Simulated scan of single mutants.
Amino acid sequence: MGSGRLSGRTAVITGGSSGIGLATAHRFLAEGANVLIGDYNEEAAASTIEKLRSDGHGDAVQVMRADVSQEGDVKALMGRALDVFGSLDVVFNNAGIGGAIGPIVETEVDHWDATFAVMMRGVFLGVKHAAKIMMTLGGGSIINTASIAGLSSGVPPTAYSATKAAVLSFTKNAAAELAEHKIRVNAVSPGIIFTKLMHQGRDELAETTMRIVQPWPERGQPEHVANTLVFLASEESSFVTGESIAVDGGYLANGLLRMHPLPGAKTKPDYAGITYGLTGRPRDVRKLS
């Protein structure tokens, strides 16, 4: 195991096969951590671990299929980290999907519930089962992925934004409750981060939108968020809990405009349904008349 700010620590990352999760796995491993990636997409997870091991990380990285909306999967994931690496020090609850899209009156209840099942219940379950183990080990750091979409209105999709607002509230309450056990709970709130889940293959259109709403002249990259994750996972943030750090290139400082920061989005959508991000499940979207 290499030296670094996370040397000797074990981290679980959900949704770790792409985007912010994968960039964080790279950083955590570089900082000396053992990493267990939990991901719904088995094919992507297999490709990820092959790549990480070819980069020289060997058995320091493991992977396990996990549906974060299912309590049994999340409990097993946290237990696997303890069984394989002997500890559980950091948990990054990052797994997500695009979720329900379209006008509220056209949103299917099942799509709304599926969005919250992954984006909010998944975070709750991650905190619950990480904390149960961390309480026996003397503490730890839990980090949840929120979003600037949860910090203000006017940023659709509505279901996605609502889950992120819930994550922010839950993070603060969990931090207060778990502090006596020396378990820190924080969140990161990314802005426009150029991942496949964000731009859906339309990165040039996303860049045009970015130039309008983001003061900082460079693209937000998954590595920018991963750098913040290293801080929150390490002892450098030992007195930080219950916080959300926006990694957004000044987007919030610029004021939230009535414009969706994703390519091709419209003020009044002409579609409805649900997208499942990079899970491998096909989107279920219909055109509105």
Score class of each variant (00 low, 15 high):
1 M>P: 00
1 M>R: 03
7 S>F: 04
7 S>K: 15
9 R>Y: 09
10 T>C: 12
12 V>N: 05
12 V>G: 03
20 I>G: 00
21 G>C: 11
21 G>S: 05
24 T>A: 12
28 F>Y: 15
30 A>L: 06
31 E>S: 05
38 G>N: 08
47 S>L: 07
47 S>F: 09
48 T>W: 05
48 T>K: 03
55 D>C: 12
60 A>P: 04
62 Q>E: 07
66 A>R: 09
71 E>F: 09
72 G>A: 15
76 A>E: 09
88 L>M: 13
90 V>T: 11
94 N>S: 04
94 N>R: 00
98 G>P: 06
98 G>I: 06
102 G>K: 11
102 G>A: 15
103 P>I: 12
104 I>A: 13
105 V>S: 13
106 E>S: 02
106 E>V: 11
110 D>S: 10
114 A>G: 11
118 V>R: 00
121 R>S: 00
123 V>P: 01
123 V>W: 01
124 F>T: 08
124 F>N: 03
125 L>A: 05
126 G>D: 07
127 V>I: 14
143 I>R: 03
154 G>S: 07
160 Y>I: 11
163 T>I: 00
170 F>W: 11
172 K>Q: 02
177 E>W: 01
186 N>F: 01
188 V>C: 05
190 P>L: 07
193 I>N: 04
200 Q>H: 01
204 E>K: 15
207 E>D: 13
207 E>I: 10
208 T>M: 15
208 T>P: 11
214 Q>A: 10
215 P>F: 01
223 E>D: 14
223 E>M: 05
226 A>S: 03
227 N>Y: 12
233 A>I: 09
238 S>Y: 06
239 F>S: 06
242 G>K: 03
244 S>W: 02
244 S>F: 14
247 V>N: 07
251 Y>I: 00
252 L>G: 12
253 A>S: 14
254 N>I: 06
255 G>C: 14
256 L>F: 13
257 L>T: 09
258 R>L: 15
260 H>P: 06
264 G>A: 08
267 T>S: 13
269 P>K: 07
269 P>A: 13
273 G>I: 05
273 G>F: 04
274 I>H: 10
275 T>K: 00
277 G>C: 05
279 T>I: 10
281 R>S: 04
281 R>E: 11
282 P>Y: 00
284 D>S: 12
285 V>M: 07
286 R>V: 14
287 K>V: 08
288 L>T: 08
